[in-house]
Simulated scan of single mutants.
Amino acid sequence: MSTEFAAPDRAWVATSPALDCSIETIICIPSFRRPKHLRLTLESIAAQRTERRFAVVVVENDASRCEGAPVAAEYLTSGRLRGVCIVEPRQGNCQAINAAFETALATFPQAKNFLMIDDDEVASPDWLERMVQAAETTGAEIIGGPVWPNFDDEHKGGLKRHPAFAPAYHTSGPVPVIYGCGNCLIRRAVFERLGQPAFDLRFNFLGGGDHDFFARARRAGFRFFWVTEADISETVPESRTSLGWIVRRGLRIGAINYHIERKAAQTIWSRTAVKAKMFGLVPFSLLRFTRIVLKEQQAVIAMHPMVVAIGSALAVLGIEPQPYSASKIAP
């Protein structure tokens, strides 16, 4: 069994019997301290209604506790799922996702389709079939689908309309870009064009490496398509529906927006213009707050653009959250 990856310190901890490296569709699953949720994710993958051969690449991103790896090993060694589980010792959102994609690309050289689902998500039974079918029939290189929140606190159902939880689109068809990788399919050509590492490590603890990756893919001319029926549900614990968490999420989105625009700016003048724009968004967001609160009748939804604008301005000053640092993530 070969263990030659882009990073030599990534260890294989489990593999399915008689691993077939000619499989063309791979599902990548980064995992960090959510073994119970990971089991639900893998169970939904094992229950996919499709005749297509596919494999999984599970990345354990907590080398010290390693709670998810035994769960993945159970599905792989029993033959319920085909694929591999590896440990990525370098902690962080982008490190884990890069490890998944790089391992999948290297281990399955004939693979064309690389899907991703998070370890707190559950795929609908026809998810894989609909995603791959869309890639084959539309010619789009990147496919996205909705992630619907499943709130632990059933009284928070009104937050489904909040931008932090609502899908970007509600109709299937071509779209300008997608923003998150929690429900996506990426064709091999995208990785070959954009190079490695796929996700910029500058976003490793902030988040937003997916947003940056898709922004670069759009500038490179790749096409995007949205499949409303290829849905996934995400478990949302009570801690992520508190006002404090929602505000921090908005500040983080603002910081991500700033870093993506600054990264694309090539001159000192364009970078100065980006900084000025970030500060200018703050007073403009107050007007948006008034319009949205009259429409939605929920201040927590209306305040989102204002919080995002403040997050962008704070990022210009070097003040930003780091939610994907191990010290910031609750077990």
Rank of each mutant, 00 (worst) to 15 (best):
18 A>C: 13
186 I>T: 06
6 A>L: 13
256 I>M: 07
232 I>R: 02
94 C>L: 12
33 R>V: 02
267 T>P: 10
164 A>D: 07
297 Q>P: 07
195 G>H: 00
69 A>G: 09
66 C>L: 12
63 A>H: 12
184 C>Y: 03
269 W>E: 12
87 V>T: 04
165 F>D: 05
171 T>L: 09
208 G>C: 09
148 W>H: 13
112 K>I: 07
316 V>G: 02
128 L>M: 11
15 T>N: 12
286 L>Y: 10
315 A>C: 14
325 S>M: 13
103 T>A: 04
132 V>H: 00
166 A>N: 09
300 V>N: 02
194 L>H: 03
109 P>N: 06
42 L>W: 06
38 L>K: 02
57 V>T: 07
210 D>P: 04
201 L>W: 10
204 N>E: 03
9 D>V: 08
39 R>K: 12
64 S>C: 13
158 G>H: 15
98 N>K: 04
260 I>N: 01
244 G>W: 03
261 E>R: 15
184 C>N: 01
3 T>I: 14
175 V>F: 05
320 E>I: 01
323 P>Q: 12
276 A>W: 13
212 D>F: 14
109 P>K: 06
85 C>N: 08
53 R>N: 11
291 R>Y: 11
63 A>K: 09
168 A>S: 08
271 R>N: 00
159 L>Y: 00
112 K>S: 10
280 G>Q: 14
300 V>A: 04
304 H>C: 04
295 K>E: 14
184 C>I: 09
174 P>K: 14
303 M>D: 10
295 K>H: 14
306 M>L: 14
251 L>A: 06
10 R>F: 09
239 S>G: 07
311 G>R: 01
148 W>S: 07
250 G>E: 04
215 A>K: 10
9 D>L: 10
159 L>A: 07
255 A>K: 06
70 P>H: 12
150 N>H: 15
203 F>D: 00
186 I>V: 12
274 V>T: 03
276 A>G: 08
230 A>R: 00
305 P>M: 00
57 V>Y: 04
29 I>T: 09
176 P>D: 03
205 F>D: 03
256 I>C: 02
310 I>Q: 11
318 G>K: 03
198 A>H: 01
121 E>I: 04
257 N>S: 11
198 A>N: 05
315 A>S: 15
15 T>W: 15
52 R>N: 04
185 L>D: 01
103 T>C: 07
198 A>M: 08
53 R>S: 12
310 I>M: 14
113 N>T: 07
204 N>K: 05
232 I>T: 09
219 R>E: 09
146 P>F: 07
108 F>I: 03
118 D>G: 11
166 A>D: 04
127 W>R: 01
25 T>S: 13
70 P>G: 08
254 G>T: 00
29 I>F: 05
198 A>I: 08
259 H>S: 07
150 N>F: 14
318 G>E: 08
37 H>W: 01
283 P>A: 09
220 A>F: 10
105 L>I: 13
312 S>H: 11
144 G>M: 10
331 P>Y: 15
182 G>A: 14
313 A>C: 11
143 I>M: 04
290 T>P: 06
248 R>L: 15
168 A>G: 02
279 F>A: 10
133 Q>Y: 14
91 Q>M: 04
189 A>P: 00
129 E>F: 05
129 E>W: 06
152 D>C: 11
186 I>R: 00
155 H>M: 14
